[in-house]
Simulated assay, not measured.
Amino acid sequence: MATDLGVVITVTAVAGGALAGLSNIGKAITTLKSSTDNLIARQKELNNIIGFLEGTRIDKSLQKQYDKLGESIRRLTNDYQALNRVQVAKQANAAEWAGIKGQFQGVFK
């Protein structure tokens, strides 16, 4: 009986940990999305300034900043998409663990 209880406690702890991990991933996704949105807005501002200063010496410097922002946006977007895939996989695992937990609890009642 003690072993059965230990199994239920272990499964419950693992499932709880998986759910906590989902929360952390959700926060990271929100942060990445916000950062990406801010960079996109900054890139649009630079694009407008570059258009205004086109042909000047300053134009080349701004173009470099614009290109760097574009690369940062691409990296953040890739990170955001990767985290989304991880979150989907973790949610599927959490659902599976919840099912296993329910099966164990049903068996040991």
Rank of each mutant, 00 (worst) to 15 (best):
N38P: 00
D59A: 14
A98R: 14
L5D: 03
Q91G: 10
Q63K: 03
A82C: 03
V11N: 08
L46K: 09
I29N: 06
E96R: 13
D4G: 10
A98C: 05
F108P: 01
T56D: 05
F104L: 08
Q63A: 02
K90W: 07
I50Q: 07
K27M: 09
Y66C: 00
A98S: 14
Y80I: 01
V107M: 12
K64C: 01
R57W: 00
L39T: 01
A92P: 01
S35C: 06
G51S: 11
S35F: 03
Y80P: 00
S34G: 03
G70K: 07
R42S: 09
A28K: 11
D79W: 04
T31K: 09
L83R: 08
G51Y: 06
G51H: 08
D59I: 00
K109M: 10
L39K: 04
D4N: 11
E45C: 01
K90S: 11
Q63G: 00
T10V: 04
G17E: 07
Q43C: 05
D4P: 00
I49V: 15
A20Q: 10
A20Y: 05
E54A: 08
F104M: 15
L22S: 06
I73W: 01
G21R: 09
A94Y: 14
R75Q: 02
L76G: 09
R75I: 02
R75S: 01
Q105Y: 09
V11K: 12
N84E: 13
G17P: 03
V107A: 13
N48R: 12
K44S: 05
I49T: 12
K68G: 00
R75M: 02
G99D: 11
Q87G: 02
A20I: 08
A18I: 10
V11C: 07
K68W: 02
T30L: 07
A89F: 06
L32K: 11
A94K: 09
I9H: 08
V86G: 02
Y80L: 13
S23V: 12
V11Y: 04
N24A: 15
S35Y: 04
T31P: 00
A28Q: 13
S23N: 07
V8Y: 04
I100C: 08
E96K: 15
G6K: 09
N84T: 13
N38K: 15
I9Y: 04
T3L: 13
F52D: 10
K27V: 12
T12S: 14
L62N: 02
T10A: 15
Y66T: 00
G70R: 04
S23F: 04
A95F: 03
L53E: 15
D59S: 14
V7R: 14
K60W: 01
A15H: 09
L39Y: 01
L5C: 02
T77C: 03
A89N: 11
L19A: 13
V86K: 06
Y80A: 03
W97H: 10
F108A: 11
T31D: 04
Y66N: 06
L22R: 11
L32D: 11
D67M: 02
R75L: 03
A13V: 05
G6S: 12
A82M: 08
N24H: 06
N24G: 04
T12F: 01
G26T: 09
K64V: 13
E71G: 01
Q65K: 10
F52Q: 14
S35M: 11
A95E: 03
V107N: 06
R85H: 06
V14R: 15
I49L: 15
A98H: 07
G16N: 12
E71M: 09
K60T: 08
D79V: 02
N78W: 02
V88P: 00
V14H: 05
